[in-house]
């Protein structure tokens, strides 16, 4: 085996590094461009313009990807979102999901639930086990969305849509919500809207 030609190797390496940096910069720019349209509704700083629009900044990467995928396929019916994602590839969807997941979750300053409301939410959790998937403090993980601090009215709307199955891309959630008393669900959305983000549980340092 011939000895390594160090100068030549380092030139090659430098070229490769330059190409890599350029490629990632271009990719990042493209995603920024694609993401720009999202802020029209979901907000410049992650605070949605409308009360029934969800926070997507800091939402779980896997969850955002699955929703975008389902908007594209029509499994989650939404004319506006379907049009937005129509021309995007699977890689675009994944990149967008990673892009928004990396943003900080905004604080909407929604009021904390009263003791009674919190107790009713806790009782619902004991009954159907919401935290079995959404995890402690409702921080979510991967394909399961973060709920703590989400828009109150969006959650109420979503609960209704799960219950009447117009939101059809997670029948398991529909089943659980249909089996839950409406009062309990109302208390749960109020509780979640005002829940602080503790960040005390979860993955550990990454």
């Amino acid at each position: 085996m011939p000895p390594l030609n160090i100068p030549r190797l380092s030139i090659m390496l430098m070229t490769l590094v330059a190409a890599f940096v350029q490629a990632s910069a271009a990719q990042a720019e493209a995603i920024e461009e694609k993401a720009a349209i999202c802020s029209t509704c979901h907000g410049e700083k992650g605070v949605p313009i409308d009360k029934v629009t969800p926070i997507i900044w800091g939402q779980m990467e896997g969850y955002i990807y699955l929703q975008l995928r389902d908007f594209k396929s029509g499994a989650r019916a939404n004319d506006l979102m379907q049009a937005v994602v129509a021309d995007l590839t699977k890689d675009d969807l994944k990149a967008l999901a990673a892009y928004f997941a990396a943003k900080p979750w905004p604080d909407l300053q929604q009021p904390s639930a009263s003791k009674d409301v919190a107790a009713a939410a806790l009782a619902l959790n004991t009954s159907v086990g919401c935290t079995g998937c959404h995890l402690g403090d409702y921080q979510g993980d991967s394909t399961v969305p973060r709920l703590a601090g989400q828009q109150h009215e969006y959650m109420d709307k979503t609960i209704n849509e799960f219950r009447d199955r117009t939101r059809a891309n997670n029948p398991g959630m529909s089943d659980l919500m249909i089996a839950s008393p409406p009062d309990g669900l109302k208390a749960m959305s109020a509780y979640l809207a005002g829940l602080q983000i503790l960040g005390s549980t979860g993955h550990g340092s990454r």
Binding site: A75, T126, S127, V128, G129, C133, N169, N170, P171, G172, M173, D175, L176, I178, A179, S180
Partner: peptide, 14 residues
């Protein structure tokens, strides 16, 4: 539902 939660109902603690 294509890999989504598929319980076919719910179990509820009383």
């Amino acid at each position: 539902p294509g890999g989504k939660l598929w319980l076919g109902g719910a179990f509820k603690v009383i």
